[in-house]
Structures are given as C-alpha cells and as structure tokens.
Amino acid sequence: MKENQTTIDTASSLKGSAGRGSASKCDIILCGVGGQGILSIATIIGEAATKAGLYLKQAEVHGMSQRGGDVQSNLRLSTEPIWSDLIAEAGADLIISMEPMESMRYLAYLGKEGKIVTSSKPFVNIPNYPDEEALQAELDALPSVKLDIESVAKDCGNPRGANMVLLGMAAPYIGILSVESLREAIATVFARKGEQVVEANLKAFDAGVAGK
C-alpha cells in the first residue's frame, strides 16, 4: 500500500481517545496558491486526527487549478460520523491560509465564531492584485491572526518550513486536537526524511505556536 495510507483503529475505539481538546468538531478550510504546500498541512492534521481516533473527511483540489491558481481543501474533523465532504456556508471554525488575499476568498464559509489564520505576505502572480494596505486593513477588521511566516521560517533556518509555521499558528485554534498531538504528527509524517528534517519542522512549528 502507498505510504500515505494510514491505518486507523477500528470503529469501536473511535470515541474517547486521549490527547484531544474539548471541542467535538473542527471544520477547516485550508487555502493558498497552487504549489504553496497546503496539502502537507492537511496531511499532518489528518495524521493527528487519525491517531486521536476522530472521523475525518478531506476534499482536495487536483488537476488544472493546481497550476498557480487559487487552491483550497475542506478538512472536517469530528467525534461523530461526517456526512458532507464540503463545509457549508458559515460552517468553518478555521480558515488557514498561506496567502492573505486567498484567506478572504472563502469568507462566506467562515463561522460567526470562526478565525482566520494567515500568512501576511502577498503572493503576487496576477496583474490586478488588490491594494496591499487596503487588503491588510480589511483583514485586520476580521477575526484574524497573521504573521510573515516566510520570514519566521527563514529566522528558524528552515526557509521551506513556512507551512509548518502556519500550522503552529493555527494549532491553538484546532480545539479538537492538542498542540502536542500535532507535534507528534509532524514527527511521524517527516520521520522517513530523517531526524534533521523533523527537528527543523518542529522548530518552525513551535515558532508559529509562539507567534514569532
């Protein structure tokens, strides 16, 4: 079987696992620009959710839209069985975005009590990218936290770990999973790439958790 197949405990053990936060569900929209690595974030959250015995559904984008266009993934975690692969309007607990403008593309899906966790640094590959100051001001008026994740990743000595910084930023808001369980998932997912890669990614993740 392929490496990305994770064995999951049988249904009887799906409830009441340890190492989890208090919420009973978490619906997340992961977004960014094709090629920014949102699926790696999804893989790690998926690994942690699987270990915790949660139900999970994750709708991904494959195909033409991956070529430098906007991409998103709907990731749903719950202690109860999940029906829809897609999140309904006003249903998302979190929007986790690798790019500030992209974080606002899915506002219709953000729940009343939801949160946006995003990179603050624009990725400009279109001629009509909006005015940056206006964009940042609009984002500030929303329930959001943002950080220049690329700079933080560089400061950590892991310039390719921006997505791990972002995951760290989001970790405290993924109520259904503990921060520690996400750290463990990073170690598991990157284990085959060696101790150094694991350490570098954990460092980036921790910097994200600390918010700097």
């Binding site: 033409m64 070529r67 430098g68 266009g69 606002m104 593309r105 009509n128 909006p130 964009l135």
Partner: peptide, 11 residues
C-alpha cells in the same frame, strides 16, 4: 464578501 479580492486563474 471580501472587497479586496481578485480572481487568480491557473497559469
């Protein structure tokens, strides 16, 4: 809906 939003087609 967001005000500062532009389409980002694939390329």
């Amino acid at each position: 809906p967001a005000k500062n939003l532009a389409a980002r087609p694939p390329q």
